[in-house]
């Protein structure tokens, strides 16, 4: 799956962009800035998905993740007042001990992960000894097999088709369960975020709650 040429170039661009955006997400003072950086990070990752030939997932990521979840985040950020934070009166990071300890362990953890990746990849290579040339040649062949698009400048991949057929056939049970999960999430979030007035009008006040 070696990327080459422009793919490699765009891989590095979007990869670094994702990391950079992620870093800024956790370091931004303003929560809205944080959200926007996260959006950019997510879009970068969507691009990486496309580079990984998972076009459908990229689309889903942008539509659902960015278009739904991040919008929701922005709504909630607006709901809770962060004026003080913007003015710089509040500290954005935790106390020093917590931050220090976290960074140390995170560094240790990333060291461990990187080492694991390297070791694992060497093992994988030992397992799948196919040369990159043969692999690349096969991929080219497959890519050539795809139907060209309407404009003729690219080919229409079969990723969506594959995901769909797999999702509705082999993964249909998790699919249905996921839909129930979403239903529960809807109900739960509606219930959690009601105001007292809304609860009272629905006659759904907590019996232990003393009305003010």
């Amino acid at each position: 799956m070696t990327l080459s040429g422009y793919e490699a170039l765009f891989f590095w661009i979007f990869g670094l962009a994702a990391i950079f955006a992620g870093l800024l997400t956790v370091m931004a003072r303003n929560a809205v800035h944080s959200a926007l950086f996260l959006i950019s990070s997510l879009i970068s990752v969507a691009a990486l998905f496309i580079l990984a030939r998972a076009e459908f997932i990229a689309g889903v990521q942008i539509l659902v993740y960015v278009g739904g979840v991040m919008v929701l985040f922005l709504f909630v950020i607006m709901l809770v007042n962060v004026g003080a934070e913007e003015r710089g009166a509040e500290e954005i990071f935790n106390n020093q001990r917590q931050v220090t300890a976290s960074l140390i362990f995170c560094l240790l953890l990333v060291g461990g992960m990187l080492y694991a990746i390297n070791t694992g990849y060497r093992g994988l290579q030992a397992r799948y000894p196919a040369t990159p040339d043969a692999v690349a040649a096969q991929e080219i062949l497959r890519d050539e097999a795809h139907a060209p698009s309407a404009t003729g400048s690219s080919r229409i991949t079969k990723d969506t088709e594959r995901v769909g057929s797999s999702l509705y056939r082999y993964a249909s049970l998790p699919f249905e369960i996921a839909s129930i999960l979403l239903l529960v999430a809807i109900i739960g979030s509606v219930m959690l975020a009601r105001t007292l007035k809304q609860e009272a009008s629905a006659d759904d006040v907590d019996p232990d709650f003393e009305s003010p």
Partner: peptide, 14 residues
């Protein structure tokens, strides 16, 4: 943080 430490320990053990 404690969870992360535990995760790190698990990785180290691995």
């Amino acid at each position: 943080l404690v969870m992360v430490i535990g995760l790190m320990v698990a990785v180290a053990v691995f």
